[in-house]
Amino acid sequence: MQRLGSDGHSAVTRARAAGCVLLVVHLALVAWITLRPLDVPWVSAANLRPFAGIRADLALGAGTAARRIAAGLALLAPLGVLLPLAGGRLGVSTFGSLLRSAAAGTLLSLGIELLQTGVPGQVVDIDSILLNTLGVVLAHLAVVPAVRARLRRRTETRDLAAVLREDPAQGPTPTIPRVGIAP
């Protein structure tokens, strides 16, 4: 049951609306970062072998590798939190929510990589898909289960308080027995 605020909108509706707005803003930022043409003197070949790009980054040094891996993890990581927030459901299973977020992150990352094939200066990299998906999963696991558990406890406490505020002298609502059809 959703409690209505003084302005007639529920807190869940406001949270979902905020989640949708933040999701659209984040996706616009991701599109701008990943799909804008780059002026580069040369472009490397597409990387279609998993972990080959990560190994190459590690060969360049720990600092460069850490920066590139962190960028790959962080690009779509907010989706791990924003997608469940935009969904606005508290009573969903943790595994199901994680699976939906990971699938959405994977598909979005794959779509970005496919769109990059037509953008000058951008190169397709399978490691980007892997890192982006891992970032979504890690962000989801770090935030969503704890926040959902807290919100569930908060909702249960409010419902219990509403039950306690009811007038105990009145008693439960009477039920009327159903009358069958006469023969």
Rank of each mutant, 00 (worst) to 15 (best):
3 R>G: 12
6 S>W: 11
7 D>K: 01
8 G>M: 08
10 S>I: 01
11 A>Y: 15
11 A>K: 11
12 V>R: 15
12 V>C: 09
17 A>T: 14
18 A>T: 02
18 A>W: 01
19 G>P: 02
20 C>R: 10
23 L>R: 00
24 V>N: 04
26 H>N: 05
27 L>V: 04
27 L>Q: 02
28 A>L: 13
29 L>Q: 06
29 L>D: 05
29 L>M: 05
29 L>G: 12
31 A>G: 08
35 L>Y: 13
40 V>R: 01
41 P>V: 00
41 P>C: 00
42 W>L: 12
43 V>Y: 05
43 V>Q: 15
48 L>R: 14
49 R>K: 02
49 R>Y: 04
52 A>D: 12
55 R>W: 04
57 D>C: 04
58 L>K: 05
60 L>H: 09
61 G>Q: 08
64 T>H: 11
65 A>S: 05
66 A>H: 08
67 R>D: 10
68 R>N: 10
70 A>I: 07
72 G>K: 00
72 G>T: 00
74 A>N: 08
74 A>E: 12
78 P>K: 00
78 P>Y: 00
79 L>T: 00
82 L>P: 01
84 P>A: 12
84 P>Q: 03
86 A>W: 01
86 A>K: 00
90 L>I: 05
91 G>K: 00
91 G>V: 11
91 G>H: 10
94 T>K: 05
95 F>R: 15
97 S>A: 10
97 S>M: 13
99 L>S: 14
99 L>T: 14
99 L>P: 07
100 R>E: 07
101 S>F: 01
103 A>D: 06
103 A>M: 11
105 G>R: 00
109 S>H: 03
110 L>A: 12
112 I>E: 09
113 E>M: 08
114 L>V: 07
114 L>E: 12
116 Q>V: 14
117 T>Y: 09
121 G>C: 06
122 Q>I: 11
127 D>P: 03
127 D>F: 02
128 S>D: 15
133 T>W: 11
133 T>Q: 12
133 T>F: 06
133 T>R: 08
134 L>N: 04
135 G>P: 07
136 V>S: 03
137 V>A: 12
138 L>G: 09
139 A>Y: 03
140 H>V: 03
145 P>S: 07
145 P>R: 06
146 A>E: 10
147 V>A: 14
149 A>K: 12
149 A>Q: 14
153 R>K: 13
156 E>G: 10
157 T>H: 04
158 R>D: 15
159 D>L: 15
159 D>Q: 11
159 D>E: 15
164 L>P: 01
165 R>Y: 09
167 D>A: 08
170 Q>Y: 03
170 Q>N: 09
172 P>V: 13
173 T>G: 10
174 P>T: 04
174 P>Y: 03
175 T>Q: 11
176 I>W: 14
177 P>H: 01
179 V>I: 04
180 G>A: 13
181 I>L: 13
181 I>S: 11
